[in-house]
Nucleic acid binder design. Structure first.
Length: 495
DNA sequence: TACATACAC
DNA sequence: TATGGTGTATGTA
């Protein structure tokens, strides 16, 4: 893609520009500003629930999860750079006094149920995204009330706090994409209202980091960065280039970001496409051990199938994560549905066998091509349900292809090993975040930064280390030549 | 259909 | 000692 970019970046793209402008105009005109969508996000949910049971945890840096992975952390811990999806042992290097609490899902589910009961009062068709997050369409409720959207959402948040002692943050806007971003603006325990007006929305997106948009992750952010797109507003300037470089789907998504367009539909009940189970463990390579794992996982999957009343799947797949962290996916499709534990295990073993010899740290098995869901609706009801699904199909976020169009040359050997003896020396002054001398536990550099800057640095550093590790692995894996093709995008965008 | 990636939570 | 699990979507061949 970079090569393609070099080729076209100085070309006359006035035709493309005109074309895209027309498209933008069309989308802009079709804008729906009639809906009031709210995204509610519980603050540090698991950690906050734990603090209810043990208020002393509020006073200390604390995270929920395990040594391998943290799910969330309280705000005291975040000041040390401890964040979700960070391995616990690394968090402990950042913050040696960190208390790690194991997960207690029943408690979180109970708290979530209370919150959801409140949501249901304001929008019976609210859309839960996880235990701690949901979208509400408040349009109907507002039409029967004197409250402004802000007052209503304040009321909902007050109610949540009263019922659960937990705080929530919320965003209010014309669609899901915007509401989601807004809920992050005044976190924790705050809300942000973006008026459902074109001018307000365009002003909002013009300066908005593209990374804030749900669906734009680390990789896409980097790709866009190389195209000089950092904010949603930047998309306009680069519209012709983006049009040439991106797939139609990705390009359409970019225009939506620029215009601040998003779905107002809560498309529930879309049929499940796959069901899977995977486990990480200490390295295994002996075939017998691998087959034993297969049996374990097949058992789990079969149980899950039953629990979810799924007849079976025509496609059986495996996922192996090698001890090198390379991931292999293999699958095979059959003419009839596979559902019995024994059948799953037998087929999976065949797939695994073809990969031998291999040393893995994770095995996953999956059934897809599931049968169409049989619902017990009668008559016309069925028809309506089906229609609803097709309606919302176009509304989902898309991402950008990151596969470059040409092969990539071999890397120069920039061997960078992450420091394994990490030490954090952060002066813990929680109440008044000020500039302190810190040693970054990742890159070992001395830094004079405040908390916010330090966290930014950490983000950067963690990314670099991850990427370098990946690059290193790719170098090591050069001997089996078929791996050359994998991960080229990373080489391109992180080098 | 098969596979690799990216992403959300 | 030590970097998760489940599911969706997209691009490409």
């Amino acid at each position: 893609m970079i090569r393609q970019y070099d080729k076209i970046k100085d070309m006359d793209l006035s035709f493309e520009t005109k074309l895209v402008d027309h498209k933008i105009n069309e989308m802009d005109t079709g804008r729906d500003l009639t809906q009031c969508i709210c995204h509610v996000d519980m603050d540090a949910f698991y950690a906050s629930v734990e603090e209810l049971d043990d208020p002393s945890l509020k006073e200390i840096p604390m995270a929920v999860g395990g040594m391998h992975m943290l799910c969330t952390s309280n705000y005291k811990a975040r000041q040390f750079g401890v964040r979700s999806a960070m391995p616990g042992y690394l968090a402990l290097k950042l913050c040696p006094q960190l208390k790690i609490i194991p997960l207690h899902f029943p408690k979180y589910r109970a708290a979530s149920a209370k919150v959801r009961a409140i949501f249901a009062k304001y929008d019976p068709s609210f859309l839960p995204m996880s235990l701690d997050e949901a979208y509400l369409n408040l349009t109907n409720y507002l039409s029967t009330s004197e409250l402004t959207p802000e007052q209503l959402v304040q009321q909902i948040r007050d109610e949540i706090q009263q019922e659960t002692q937990l705080t929530a943050s919320a965003g209010i806007a014309a669609n899901r994409m915007l509401a989601k971003i807004c809920s992050d603006f005044n976190k924790p325990n705050g809300q942000y209202f973006l008026p459902m007006e074109r001018e307000a929305i365009m002003k909002f997106t013009s300066n908005l980091s593209i990374r804030k948009v749900s669906g734009v992750g680390r990789v896409t952010e980097r790709v866009l960065q190389t195209l000089d797109v950092k904010t949603c507003g930047d998309i306009l300037h680069r519209r012709a280039i983006l049009y040439r470089l991106l797939s139609p789907i990705s390009f359409q998504f970019m225009l939506k970001c620029y215009l601040g367009l998003g779905s107002t539909n809560f498309n529930l009940e879309s049929d499940r496409k796959s069901i899977s189970v995977e486990r990480t463990f200490s390295a295994l390579s002996k075939p017998d051990d691998l087959y034993r794992k297969v049996d374990e996982l097949a058992e789990l999957l079969a149980v899950d199938l039953g629990r979810n009343q799924i007849q079976g799947g025509k496609t059986v797949g495996i996922k192996l994560k090698l001890t090198s962290f390379d991931v292999r996916v293999r699958s095979k499709t059959y003419p009839s549905y596979i559902s019995k534990k024994e059948d799953i295990a037998r087929i999976v073993k065949e797939l695994v066998q073809k990969e031998l010899p291999v040393s893995i740290r994770l095995m996953g098995i999956r059934l897809s091509s599931l049968p169409p869901k049989v619902d017990d609706d009668h008559g016309v009801k069925k028809y309506f349900k089906k229609r609803k699904n097709t309606d919302a199909g176009e509304e989902q976020p898309r991402k950008i292809s990151t596969v470059p169009s040409s092969p990539v040359s071999v890397l120069t050997s920039t061997s960078v090993t992450p420091d394994t003896h990490l030490t954090a020396s952060i002066a813990a002054n929680e109440n008044a975040p000020s500039i302190v001398a810190v040693t970054c536990p990742i890159c070992s550099r001395s830094l004079a930064l405040d908390n916010h800057q330090f966290n930014q640095h950490l983000d950067e550093c963690l990314n670099k280390v991850t990427v370098k590790a990946i690059l290193q692995q790719q170098q090591q894996n050069q001997s089996p030549p078929q791996d050359q093709t994998q991960g080229r995008s990373l080489l391109d965008y992180y080098r």
